[in-house]
Design a protein around this nucleic acid. Structure first.
Length: 868
RNA sequence: GCCCGGGUGGCGAAAUUGGCAGACGCACGGGACUUAAAAUCCCGAGUUCCGAAAGGAACGUGACGGUUCGACUCCGUCCCCGGGCACCA
């Protein structure tokens, strides 16, 4: 404990050398973050209640601050530190603002890296994971993050994952879970299936170099598409989510409004009488269709080409081409081609016979896998038709409504293709003269009336494939019985425990299938021999609802206590990386809506506000072992302290932007903390009778300047919290304040800077630093004689009158160019300012006989003299 | 190709409503203290030019143009960097 609270250095240093440093024998105490931080960390550890949210009788308003839970990879990286430094600053600030704050933390601890590390090091995944958690928890504590560790939730433990299984069963009851054989993404590196959201530019989200393959497999899916419309509409209301995230989700859901139309296939051989259903967003152009194009994998294609070797070979070629293009990731770049099947289909609107082709640019997994080709009004169809010399009938006017037709417009073929929608129909029988948009609606209605089509909406979003052929995940609670078929595990038998001793090497198939004690089970229905499902769940299931669990982390009668959830949800502020924009953030929105429909929760969206922080990079590149530019938080903490490390991640730039790490920058921050510390240590006089006294209304100019700066600083820091979270400028403001204190250092405690003001400055400084540099702030708080918990102190308020400048520097411009400056009293009348500006010596010199047209006065800012 | 961000000193950045461009910090230079160094404290600094200096001038926020008394900020055209989506019918 520091015993040097006694007042020191209240005597004035020699007047003739105010900047002279103190003699060596009087050398002051240095800032030693390691000493301070260890002392406080030990104290905080002794008080587990310190960061606990208040119970039901709390009178404070609730505030739920949530940071994305980390995967326990082994050690925190700087991205984590930045994420949690932002969240912690907010949590501490909200406490000081008088809120009842819930600030939890947990571990997203199932997943492949544990399994891969286990194979490599021959350590069980559980052991590896728990060991990493212990280390990362130590790091978080060392960094001083204010988490309530009673909320700690570890998703790989049965107490948590049993509720994943419970949800799976509930979703199954609601028809939101199904099993289907389909083409799925397969990452050879992970040796498992991936959801669409986990494929980034054709590659695995974990292995950016590994192209995803397509495999036909039987898999479990969650019916997220049932919620496509609501997920889309809900985005409109998420005003406090970044636009970027909302746009990405909108694109991902990919709503497309159009119509489906059935074309009857002509001819007798093969599937005579079959229909081809196409999806189109431009049914208004259907009179311009000159062919139908099927995807090479369209189920009808095999029938159509069965009897023709030549055709069959061609189609197979198209198929493999498409597959290769898809795996290479540049689908759009491939040249279009196709083959005519020799068959025709009838356009139900005008009975035209259209040749049926198979084309490599038609995708089976979008729409119906078949399109009508309207070359005159679609760029892709045009490109294709040109190549194969297919007709290009024009059915919309070649100019937009309200535009003047160009002379010679009759020859509109040089304009092809034109795709605009604000035009009128032509060559379309009874529909001629309708606007495109009207026609889209009317023709879809007519099709429905006639029974050959209808208005249709399709989505790009696909159902969420959740089966994983790996070990370290939640077992899927399903049983296959020869007699009864698929039987869900009864709720009373949960959890289905993940067995511990398992051969997890990648020798094919799910590792669990090689554990007979796990696989062999009695059918819950008939009691006969049955087999368990051996796939595990995608870990994104775990993270879809963990923040509900935080509200009642030890609850064992359900996934969470609905009362607690009602109290705390939704999350008031969620903070994390943008990389989860269409992974975790879309899944958790879906999960929340299902839970609402189950009657478990009241809210439809998980988080009120979302903040996505920028990446931490170094030397322009992402930190990575291979690039050799990793900065380890532990090293920084050891060298400069936790406060400096955290503070630097906030100071280096606005938190939503990328941060280019510079070691020297941390040094600068440590220097600032040291200055703040030493100034407080040097001038603290908690025993002085004036220490807590009100600051006198009349102050000498020097003291007044300090007071003004103090109130301006409170305003700047408070404003940043309330609006933009540009903590870099908040910290710059506090630095300016400290610089201002050093400027009048020799006066501290004397007439020019009375003790009462020193006391107020020091208390405020500790309060302002509390959200950003908690260790130093607490140390200061104690040294200035305060006993109450800093965390529960009210945030300082500023007095606008005291923050005001009394004298303002007015800039004088001539024709917009800076020519001189003028000191005027705040609120000086415009006329006076104008006259003084015009009378200014430098101004007169630059006017130099020119004629003054006018002088614009912007009160409190400038005078601009316009001359000719 | 489409949709978002972004482009300001040697570097990270600031300028919240159209009103002093470069706050704050890093790196750098000079000085004080020291036998010396580190640490600390003080001072300087956008670029170019003029001047012995005090000081002054011109240029300057990706490029070009526009609006305005005045533009980093608003409008138009374009370039570059980052991210997302992409034969989506």
């Amino acid at each position: 404990m520091p015993d040097d609270n006694k007042p020191k250095m209240s005597a004035a240093p020699p007047k003739e050398a105010p900047a002279a440093p103190r003699p060596a024998e009087e050398r002051e105490e240095r800032y030693q973050p390691q000493v301070i931080e260890q002392k406080w960390q030990a104290r905080w550890d002794r008080d587990p209640e310190l960061y606990r949210a208040e119970g039901p009788d709390s009178k404070r308003k609730k505030y739920y601050v949530l940071e994305m839970l980390p995967y326990p990879s082994g050690a925190l990286h700087m991205g984590h530190v930045r994420n949690y430094a932002i969240g912690d600053a907010l949590a501490r600030h909200m406490w000081m603002r008088g809120h009842n704050v819930l600030h939890p933390m947990g571990w997203d601890s199932f997943g492949l890296p544990a399994e891969n590390a286990a194979i490599k090091n021959n350590t069980p995944p559980r052991e590896w994971t728990l060991h990493n958690i212990a280390n990362m928890k130590r790091q978080m504590k060392r960094l001083g993050f204010a988490y309530d560790w009673a909320t700690e939730t570890t998703t790989c433990l049965p107490e948590y994952y049993r509720w994943n299984q419970w949800f799976f069963l509930k979703f199954y009851e609601r028809g939101l879970v199904y099993r289907k054989k389909s083409r799925v993404n397969w990452c050879p590196e992970c040796a498992t299936v991936l959801a669409n959201e986990q494929v980034v530019a054709g590659c695995c989200w974990r292995h950016e170099e590994t192209r995803v393959e397509q495999r036909e497999l039987e898999q479990w899916f969650l019916r997220i598409t049932d919620y496509a419309e609501e997920l889309l509409e809900g985005l409109e209301k998420l005003e406090n989510w970044p636009d970027k995230v909302r746009v990405m989700q909108r694109n991902w859901i990919g709503r497309s409004q159009g119509a489906s139309v059935d074309f009857k296939l002509e001819g007798e051989a093969g599937p005579a009488g079959a229909t081809i259903t196409v999806f189109t967003t431009r049914i208004d152009t259907i009179f311009g269709a000159s062919s139908l194009q099927l995807a090479p994998e369209h189920p009808l294609v095999a029938d159509l080409v069965r009897d023709d070797h030549h055709l069959r070979a061609k189609v197979e070629e198209l198929q493999s081409e498409q597959r290769k293009a898809r795996e290479a990731g540049d689908v759009a770049a491939v040249e279009k081609h196709g083959v005519f099947t020799g068959r025709y289909a009838v356009n139900p609107f005008n009975q035209a016979k259209l040749p049926v082709w198979v084309a490599n640019y038609v995708l089976m997994d979008y729409g119906t896998g078949a399109i009508m080709s309207v070359p005159a009004h679609d760029e892709r169809d045009f490109e294709f038709a040109k190549k194969y010399k297919l007709p290009t009938p024009v059915v919309i006017m070649p100019w937009k409504v309200g535009e003047k037709p160009e002379p010679g417009h009759e020859d509109h073929h040089h304009l092809l293709p034109f795709t605009f929608e604000d035009s009128l129909l032509m060559n379309s029988g009874a529909y001629d003269g309708l606007s495109c948009r009207d026609a889209q609606q009317i023709m879809a209605e007519d099709a429905e009336e006639e029974g050959f089509g209808k208005a249709t909406i399709i989505y790009r979003l696909k159902d969420w494939g959740v089966s994983r052929q790996r070990y370290w995940g939640t077992p899927i609670p399903m049983i296959y019985c020869g007699g009864c078929g698929m039987v869900p595990v009864p709720e009373k038998d949960l959890p289905v425990l993940l067995p511990e001793k398992v051969d997890i090497t990648l020798s094919g198939g799910s590792p669990l299938s090689r554990v007979p004690e796990f696989v062999d089970v009695k059918c819950p229905k008939c009691g006969g021999a049955a087999r368990r499902e051996t796939d595990t769940m995608d870990t994104f299931v775990d993270s879809s609802w963990y923040y509900f669990r935080y509200c009642s982390p030890t609850y064992d009668k359900g996934p969470f206590d609905v009362e607690q959830v009602r109290k705390w949800m939704p999350v008031d502020q969620y903070i994390g990386g943008v990389e989860h924009a269409i992974l975790h953030l879309i899944y958790s929105r879906f999960w929340t809506k299902v839970m609402r429909d189950m009657g478990l929760v009241e809210n439809s969206e998980p988080a009120q506000r979302l903040f996505t922080q920028g990446m931490v990079i170094k030397g322009g590149a992402k930190m990575s072992k291979s690039a050799g530019n990793v900065v380890a938080p532990d090293d920084m903490v050891e060298k400069y302290g936790a406060d400096a490390t955290r503070l630097y991640t906030l100071f280096a730039g606005p938190p939503d932007r990328e941060l280019d790490w510079q070691d020297a920058g941390v040094e600068g921050i440590a220097r600032f903390l040291s200055r703040a510390f030493r100034w407080v240590a040097r001038h603290a006089q908690p025993g002085h009778p004036q220490w807590r006294a009100a600051v006198p209304a009349e102050l000498p100019a020097e003291a007044r300047a300090v007071q003004r700066k103090l109130h301006q600083t409170i305003k700047r820091v408070s404003d940043d919290f309330e609006s933009r979270w540009h903590f870099n400028t908040s910290i710059a403001a506090i630095m300016e304040l400290v610089n201002a204190l050093y400027a009048v250092d020799d006066q501290a405690g004397q007439d020019g800077f009375p003790v009462a003001l020193v006391g107020e400055v020091q208390r405020t400084l500790a309060l302002l630093l509390a959200p950003f540099a908690p260790y130093l702030a607490h140390e200061m708080w104690e040294r200035i004689g305060e006993k109450q918990s800093l965390l529960r102190q009210p945030w300082p308020s500023y007095d606008p009158e005291l923050a005001k400048e009394e004298e303002i520097e007015i800039v004088i411009q001539v024709n917009g160019k800076l020519r001189s400056r003028l000191l005027v009293a705040a609120g000086a009348p415009e006329e006076e300012v104008r006259e003084r500006a015009l009378a200014d010596e430098k101004v007169r010199a630059s006017l130099d006989g020119k004629q003054v047209v006018k002088a614009i006065v912007v009160p409190g800012k400038l005078v601009n003299i316009v001359v000719k």
